[in-house]
């Protein structure tokens, strides 16, 4: 039996928790295929910068990537809705349900297909927090603050009165430290504690409405994917769905553990009122509509809104 060898460019930094899960993913695929599909994972930036992986897989330098669709939302508007939606689904299970139960997966595949790429499956997990130097107790308090947000969230936060600066991730710590900005998003709760944000921002705001849930995705080069046999394809799908659940649960537990660490470091945790968030969501829909500029993105947005209405989120 011949062994198929793949390279996978992931978006996470080497040694980080999510990167460990990518290594588990590769090990699991090898196990499920009896060793017939060997995937070597590379950490973000090790070979190509994370945001450029789309073209590297398209061009055939890698067979697979673990990416964040938001990187390509400037090319493919649908990717704004298959990555993270500001004020979108508050629970990762709801977002994952949209993928598997309400056609999200099929629409994501449709969005990648013309590029010669095959969307395999998402990894869905929960909120990223907002860090602030000043107390922000309700959405209305955001008005007049200087903040750092990226992607669609920057437009939505601007709608709520935040002056948004597009600072690079590496500048967040010092920008908060020096008071260049008042509030910022960065990564998940654990990663931000390890970055030391508790040293520079005394308030941590939950839920992270700018990024309540996130989907990263396994995307393969279509030619390479089509050359796999049925067992190998199934193994990718199974391993991906496993990782989605296990990483999400790992983050869930880590969030609790690290919120405690933030508190011990003297950071005040502020919880937004769910009613306040729900009202703001109705306003955020306006920004979603502006971002949905083609057929697939409109269908994605509408099916998400429909599910949110059924779940009484809107």
């Amino acid at each position: 039996q011949s062994v198929t060898k793949w390279r996978m460019q992931a978006l996470w930094g080497g040694g980080t928790t999510p990167m460990l899960y990518e290594e588990k993913f590769c090990a699991r695929v090898a196990e499920l295929t009896g060793g017939s599909l060997e995937i070597t994972p590379f950490a973000g930036g090790q070979i190509v910068p994370s945001a450029q992986a789309f073209d590297a897989v398209r061009g055939g330098a890698f067979e697979l990537m673990k990416t964040f669709d938001g990187y390509t939302a400037g090319k493919i508007p649908a990717h704004g809705f298959s990555s993270t939606v500001p004020f979108g689904f508050p629970e990762p299970d709801q977002y994952e349900a949209w993928f598997y139960e309400r056609g999200g997966l099929e629409m994501a595949r449709e969005s990648y297909a013309p590029a010669g790429l095959t969307y395999v499956a998402p990894t869905v997990y929960g909120q990223e927090p907002i860090h602030s130097r000043v107390p922000v107790r309700k959405i209305a308090d955001l008005k007049g603050l200087k903040g750092r947000f990226v992607g669609l969230a920057s437009a939505v936060m601007a709608d709520f009165g935040v002056s948004v600066s597009p600072l690079p991730t590496s500048e967040v710590y010092s920008a908060l430290d020096k008071g260049l900005i008042d509030i910022a998003d960065r990564g998940d709760i654990k990663a931000n504690f390890e970055e030391g944000l508790h040293e520079v921002a005394k308030y941590l705001i939950l839920p992270g409405v700018h990024q309540p849930t996130t989907a990263t995705s396994y995307v393969a080069n279509t030619r390479a994917f089509d050359a796999l046999d049925a067992q190998q394809k199934a193994a990718l799908a199974v391993a991906a769905r496993e990782i989605s659940g296990t990483l999400r649960q790992n983050i869930l537990v880590a969030n609790g553990e690290y919120i405690k660490k933030f508190q011990d470091a003297g950071v005040e945790i502020i919880d937004f009122d769910p009613e306040d968030v729900a009202q703001a969501r109705a306003k955020a829909v306006e920004a979603w509509k502006k971002a949905a500029t083609d057929d697939i993105s409109k269908r994605m947005m509408e099916s998400q809104i429909a599910l949110m209405q059924e779940l009484r989120l809107l």
């Binding site: 190509v48 450029q52 061009g59 055939g60 330098a61 690079p168």
Partner: peptide, 21 residues
């Protein structure tokens, strides 16, 4: 690695072209 992987050099250059630091 294969000729198609040469694209990697260009993708890295795009990143260098917009590096704030």
């Amino acid at each position: 690695w294969g000729p198609s992987a040469l694209i990697v050099a260009v993708l890295n250059t795009f990143e260098t072209m917009t590096s704030e630091s």
